[in-house]
Design a protein around this nucleic acid. Sequence first.
DNA 1: TGCGTACAAAAAATAAATTATTCCCAATAG
DNA 2: CTATTGGGAATAATTTATTTTTTGTACGCA
Lengths: 281, 281
Amino acid sequence: MSTFVKIKALRQSLSSSEAKLADFTLNSANAIRNLSSVELAKVVGVSQSSVVKFSQKLGYKGFPAFKLAVIDALNDETSEPKLHGKITLSDSLEQIAEKLLSSKLAVLTETKNLNETVAIEQAVSLLKSAKRILICGLGGSALVAKDFSYKLQKLGMPAIAEPDGHAQLAYVSTFAKGDLVIAISESGVTREIAEVVKQAKKNDSYVISVTKFGSNPVADRANVRLYSVAEEESVRLSSILARTAQDFVIDILFIALTQSSRQGRKLLEHSNDVVGEFRNH
Amino acid sequence: MSTFVKIKALRQSLSSSEAKLADFTLNSANAIRNLSSVELAKVVGVSQSSVVKFSQKLGYKGFPAFKLAVIDALNDETSEPKLHGKITLSDSLEQIAEKLLSSKLAVLTETKNLNETVAIEQAVSLLKSAKRILICGLGGSALVAKDFSYKLQKLGMPAIAEPDGHAQLAYVSTFAKGDLVIAISESGVTREIAEVVKQAKKNDSYVISVTKFGSNPVADRANVRLYSVAEEESVRLSSILARTAQDFVIDILFIALTQSSRQGRKLLEHSNDVVGEFRNH
DNA sequence: TGCGTACAAAAAATAAATTATTCCCAATAG
DNA sequence: CTATTGGGAATAATTTATTTTTTGTACGCA
């Protein structure tokens, strides 16, 4: 158990000298690092023997052992991956930023672990061999779809991201064997997307899904299932975190694609050059 | 400098007793934790005074100081946030994912640290009091702009994100005092965006910039400067990481906005309900 | 109320341990 | 043969742990 937890637990049953030491430890743990038992006693205003007794009361052999425990506790505290608690109304801006950050870190890590390497390989392989590609998503996912389409276009791939549900359906109805649909829907139940997927399957086209983990209409029908986020966060953050996870998935796909094809890299380079050239004038 | 690095650097110039201690420290650093100078001397097979002299040769006041340094070095070693090396052609898919993940983690952390709380507060305040809002960005940033506009619209705010440069300029030319431009451009030199900012300033409108850190045409003219990423990564990753950072910035702004207004939260809730209702039929 | 005992807490005193310094010897190079 | 250096034994200094003493307070009882 952390020394601090221990101290807090015993805090009530301590006598006045001990309480002084306990409070000092909790408030200025850092300072203890550089203090001997005598110095600590002086700073806190108790006798040196009280310091030793306090250490022993906490279960340590003596003062040096206590000191080490405090240092350890400080280290654990700072290296802990920071729990990403819910953002509440009373949070300060600094706390909000901190929590959003750790939530994102958690979501990214989870998303990475959720997707098997083999699934990504399959997805890359489908992408490379696809004749035409339709990336569909609605609402927030539409932007992810659009982003992915831009990226694929940079690689010279025939990818289209259409934000309108009806247009998506119209396009996919012309699909055939060799064409590919990438269906992005966090819930996996979006009616329009599910419909597109159904149609794609009917036309013998391949489907890659990007949804939350588990069974759902979109993923169930997909040839390759990719996943975004694992845990449901607070409602307020959910769409933000879903986006974060979806972005990660398509970023991985994109990098893996450029990785696996020399031609793709060349085209990407060229595309970047052209845009850069243009911007500088 | 880490104690271990120090030891390795001096390793050659050490005498036999000192070398014994150095090797033991490098190989069994963990053990030192529980040893006194006498015990360590015994284990290694040297005299206690040699232990002390060794500690001092490394630059520490004495043995206890050396011991603390070793413990610190061990802690730093284990909690190091995994260096996010460049992705190379020979990387496996698993390595790619790992590196992308750590790069994103680093970029998010940096972005959070780069933005002062007070700047975010000012941005929020400008957003809340703005009569009209134009969010402009080109290329990849256009998607970030669009995303932010959707979010602001959910809060009932008059935000427009227009991907076309000319249309942006046309709109901003009608701006006046009380209107707000949010200019998103990683480089901060995009001609079209800089032009919009110039026009906005001429019309006495406020400008919030989201660019890389440092002086650039867009940020220099802004009333409030927000920053994305700090370090330039590999060219291949740069646009991906820029997006990651920009998303973080607008996510923070969005959350801070909902945080600061009861009405905003109500509208957001309602908006989510309506869309959810619609999707389920 | 006044006095004395009992008890607990905390500091002073002391003992033990750990650590730092000094001093001396041995090995080796010049 | 001297000078120098490494290393350990001896010892001094410091730090820590234990024991002893003092202080203060609560409680019982005349």
